[in-house]
Design a binder for these strands. Structure first.
Length: 422
RNA sequence: GGAUGGGUGGCCGAGCGGUCGAAGGCGCACGCCUGGAAAGUGUGUAUACGUGAAAGCGUAUCGUGGGUUCGAAUCCCACCCCAUCCGCCA
């Protein structure tokens, strides 16, 4: 959501910002509707003031025992004027709001220009792509050969883009989630949360999924939605709140299932568990004062990077370009892991600073002195568990079809050092 | 699903259709008192929009949306949510 006053103050800057996103300029349209709306509002408010004045006089006259018929008649006349004057208002307000809430966030100045992921900029790389003395297999080949990853049965139960994990792989999934959450809560200052997976429309609106991206969500028959990420409930913890400075920063983390319809991605990543309707993710959310979000963004990204490093994975940090940055984000760093089997870098975490974009939708503020300032909100995966499992399988596979368990996970795996068939 | 009660400011909690943006208390801020503190005491303390250079002025907001009325926190209707009890259930 955008600040209409900022657009009024500098419509050209707003148009340039939207052009970076590949959108046609709309500031003139917005400010035009806004001017109409305010003109109507001013007229209506003057009439309301008159009505209130008459109402007061009626009250005084009645107490004094005077005749009020003439005043009441005037009141009725003004009421009729109000009704006709304000008739246009709801539609006018909806026009302005509709534009403001459907346009993406303004990008930071240093976000690289570019239309799509090919223009993203690699900032740094950790480790070398693994080399094997045997053919590197993809995660689903490894998992199916182990007899612990079953897509056919999942398809029978639910359809495509689901998986059944068994035995050591099921436990590996659990171990990854547990260990990551323990790391962030134990060493990175995040507070563990268990949050609703089913949320209402106001919550989805707060983080920007609604009204524009309803088709990406699963909706329930009673009007709720399955969360596509724990970012949604975690960020909405501060919705409609005025916080004290001492409340900040808020750092919240959760391990949760995520549900995505994947509408529009038909045919992409159909093999394996890279792109599923349901997956597990550890999510980090920070709520900070406006001047603190840059440092927090860097900090949060490093928290996610540490996860990948400790799992012995090869990864790189990518600065998303204008065309690849999500709707609510002002800037985003993706972390990509190298998948030796697929021989490709794949996204495993995404850390975004939304600045006040979500806070304005949520009316989440902090009282600093006399002012109520919108907070800044940030979110980052720390990291996607399903994709981490893929990366561990492909990175730590061996010639016999086994997989070495990263040391940090062994306490969570009952001491198991290697996953093997049998 | 059935029954009952209830949604008022940062929190608790009053509120006869007009003088109610709303008593009182708590909390908070500033001052007085004190060697310092506590206690006591005084003053102040909602949000949003419009308008204005500013001070200010205006408007809206008592769960949401409608209605009655010159005028609604207060009356009427619908809906939402919460609590408690019963039933069902992990």
């Amino acid at each position: 959501m955008h600040d209409i006053r900022a657009i009024r103050a500098d419509p050209d800057a707003f148009d340039r910002a939207m052009e970076r996103r590949g959108l046609t300029p709309s500031a003139a349209e917005i400010t035009g509707f806004d001017a109409e709306t305010r003109a109507t509002q001013t007229t209506v408010q003057a009439l309301l003031a008159e009505r209130n004045e008459i109402g007061k006089k009626v009250g005084q006259a009645k107490r004094a025992g005077e005749d009020t018929a003439a005043l009441e008649a005037r009141g009725r006349a003004v009421a009729a004027e109000i009704a006709s004057a304000e008739a246009a208002l709801p539609a006018q307000q909806a026009q302005v709001l509709g534009l403001l809430e459907s346009l993406p966030n303004i990008l930071d100045a240093d976000v690289p220009d570019g239309p799509d992921e090919t223009a993203n900029v690699v900032l740094h790389t950790h480790g070398e792509p693994a080399r094997f003395n045997h053919p590197a297999r993809e995660h689903f080949e490894i998992g199916e050969a182990l007899g612990l990853m079953d897509f056919a049965t999942a398809a029978k139960i639910s359809g495509s883009r689901f998986v059944v994990l068994k035995g050591a792989l099921a436990r590996l999934e659990r171990a990854l989630g547990q260990w990551m959450l323990d790391l962030h809560t134990g060493e990175h200052g995040y507070t563990e949360h268990v949050v609703p997976l089913l949320v209402n429309d106001a919550t989805m609106y707060g983080t920007g999924q609604l009204p524009k991206f309803a088709e990406d969500l699963f909706a329930t028959t009673d009007g709720r939605f399955l969360i596509p990420t724990a970012e949604v409930p975690l960020t909405n913890l501060v919705r409609d709140q005025i916080l004290a400075p001492a409340d900040l920063p808020i750092r919240a983390a959760a391990l949760s299932p995520c549900f995505r319809s994947e509408a529009g991605s038909a045919g992409r990543d159909t093999r394996g568990m890279l792109r599923q309707h349901q997956f597990t993710k550890v999510e980090m959310v920070s709520v900070v004062a406006p001047d603190a979000s840059d440092a927090e963004h860097e900090r949060m990204t490093q928290c996610a990077e540490r996860v990948l490093t400790e799992l012995g994975l090869t990864w790189r940090r990518v600065f998303l370009c204008a065309g690849d940055t999500g709707f609510s984000a002002a800037r985003t760093y993706d972390l990509e892991v190298w998948l030796p089997g697929q021989k490709a870098w794949r996204e495993i975490s995404s850390c975004s600073n939304t600045r006040d974009f979500q806070a304005r939708r949520m009316k989440a503020r902090v009282k600093i002195g006399k002012d109520n300032l919108l907070v800044h909100t940030l979110n980052g995966s720390g990291v996607a568990v399903g994709r981490a499992l893929i990366a561990v399988l492909e990175t730590h596979q061996d010639a016999e079809g086994g997989v070495t368990v990263p040391e940090v996970l062994r306490p969570y795996m009952g001491g198991l050092e290697r996953i093997a068939r049998g």
